[in-house]
Amino acid sequence: MVASLRLPILSSAMLFVFRRFPSFVWILIACTGCLACDPSGGDEPTTPEPQPEPDANFFNPVYQVGPDPWVFQEGDTYYVTYTTGRNITLIETEKMSGLRTADARARTVWSPPASGMNSSQIWAPEIHRIDGTWYVYYAASDGNNDNHRMWVLANEDADPMSDNWEDRGELELPDDKWAIDGSPVAIDGQWYFAWSGWEGDTNVAQDIYITRMTSPTEVTGERVRVLQPEADWERNGTDPRVVEGPQFIAHDNSLFMFYSAGGCWTDGYSLGALQLAIGDDPLAADSWTRLEQNPLFVSNAAARAYGPGHNSFFTSPDGTENWILYHANAQPGQGCGDERSMRMQLFTWSADGLPVLGEPAALGQALPVPAGE
């Protein structure tokens, strides 16, 4: 840092000296400036000039094209992925508010084969680290939506941004039916897998199922349907009816399963949640109860947030704040395409231990960055 220099006012006599002996005058000015900076001659430290504060705000969207966003937090680093439809792309960052800046690093870590049952329609990937190995769970098909199933990639490197991703094949779910939006979750030390699927072989409705995992790439036992689209806001006048995108967050003595409902092709696409008391059996459908506050997060035309949904969660770098990451459209009627941008905002918990999401924040609204950034 350079201290400010106050130049002395030059009299006419001094100006004459300056013209005749310019070097002498500059030495005099320099000495005068130094005395002004530190009149004690150096015995006391100078007071530093105030520095501008770093940018403490961010603006949504944090990523312009970002359907079905997912974030995994590993130490000080966040790994974000989303639906591209054609590959698995990861974004690495230490600042979630800076996904579109030089603070973030994005690259394609896996591309599908040219043909086969996981060659097309790559949807809703999630990255997890289980027992020291990285896994990506994603939905894919051969180009025919009816053939969507869940698939798994694995990487044993410490850095998931490396090229060492291996295709571990299909995660063979019970009954071998249509499946998307899969997410693993550990409950009381046991891993489970939840997803959105069809009851039969035709698209009448998407329900949410859960089953037990025996390893990160294998499941066992029957599938249990824990949610059907029955509430008015879940049905939303759509055909087929949809509940999808199960996402988990624990708080106090409960586990919450957030889900999206109402059809992503509608502006009525919204978020709700189920609640499970820790200790109850996750494979018993009646252990899961709908929150009376549902829906928790709905379209906000004034904020240019239509169809907010398919969320995930993260905490601020200092661990004191809870944040939701989600997608939404900026205009009505934009549906399920690449117009869905990635957005994030702070949320809180009520005195009763229930999630309080509020309304989607407006595009262009200045929001404080996560604490610790």
Rank of each mutant, 00 (worst) to 15 (best):
Gly189Ala: 06
Leu35Asp: 08
Asn311Phe: 02
Met161Ser: 08
Gly85Pro: 13
Ala284Leu: 08
Val356Cys: 03
Ser312Met: 06
Gly221Cys: 06
Asp280Gly: 04
Gly41Leu: 06
Trp288Gln: 03
Ala330Tyr: 05
Ser120Trp: 01
Gln345Met: 09
Gly221Val: 07
Gly189Tyr: 12
Leu367Phe: 05
Thr83Val: 05
Asn253Val: 01
Val136Tyr: 02
Pro240Tyr: 05
Gly197Cys: 07
Ser183Gln: 14
Val71Ala: 03
Tyr209Gln: 07
Glu172Asn: 14
Ala366Ser: 15
Val204Ser: 14
Leu5Asn: 13
Pro45Ile: 01
Ser4Gln: 14
Gln334Pro: 11
Pro8Ser: 07
Pro240Trp: 03
Pro125Ile: 04
Gly200Pro: 06
Leu346Gln: 14
Thr320Gly: 01
Cys34Arg: 13
Ser215Ile: 06
Thr202Leu: 00
Ala330Ile: 03
Trp134Phe: 10
Ala285Gln: 15
Pro61His: 00
Tyr259Pro: 07
Cys264Ala: 09
Ser11Leu: 05
Val2His: 08
Asp286Val: 11
Ala328Cys: 05
Thr289Lys: 13
Gly200Ser: 11
Met96Trp: 07
Ala250Met: 11
Gly197Val: 09
Pro160Asp: 01
Trp195Thr: 07
Val243Gly: 02
Trp195Tyr: 14
Val369Thr: 13
Gly41Gln: 08
Leu7His: 15
Leu28Ser: 14
Ala104Cys: 08
Met161Phe: 08
Thr220Leu: 00
Leu346Ser: 10
Asp207His: 12
Arg86Tyr: 15
Arg168Ile: 03
Asp103Phe: 09
Ser196Arg: 09
Arg107Asn: 13
Ser12Phe: 13
Ala30Arg: 14
Val65Ile: 10
Asn118Ala: 11
Ala273Tyr: 09
Leu15Gln: 13
Glu44Ile: 15
Arg20Phe: 10
Gln51Ile: 12
Met117Asp: 12
Phe314His: 10
Gln365Phe: 04
Glu234Met: 02
Ile29Thr: 11
Trp178Gly: 00
Phe21Ile: 05
Leu276Thr: 12
Pro112Cys: 00
Gln73Arg: 14
Trp349Val: 09
Ile208Ser: 03
Leu7Gly: 12
Trp165Glu: 02
Ile27Ser: 10
Thr202Gly: 00
Tyr259Ala: 04
Tyr326Phe: 15
Ser4Arg: 13
Met14Ile: 14
Pro22Lys: 01
Pro370His: 04
Gln73Pro: 11
Thr47Trp: 01
Phe59Met: 13
Val25Gln: 05
Gln331Cys: 04
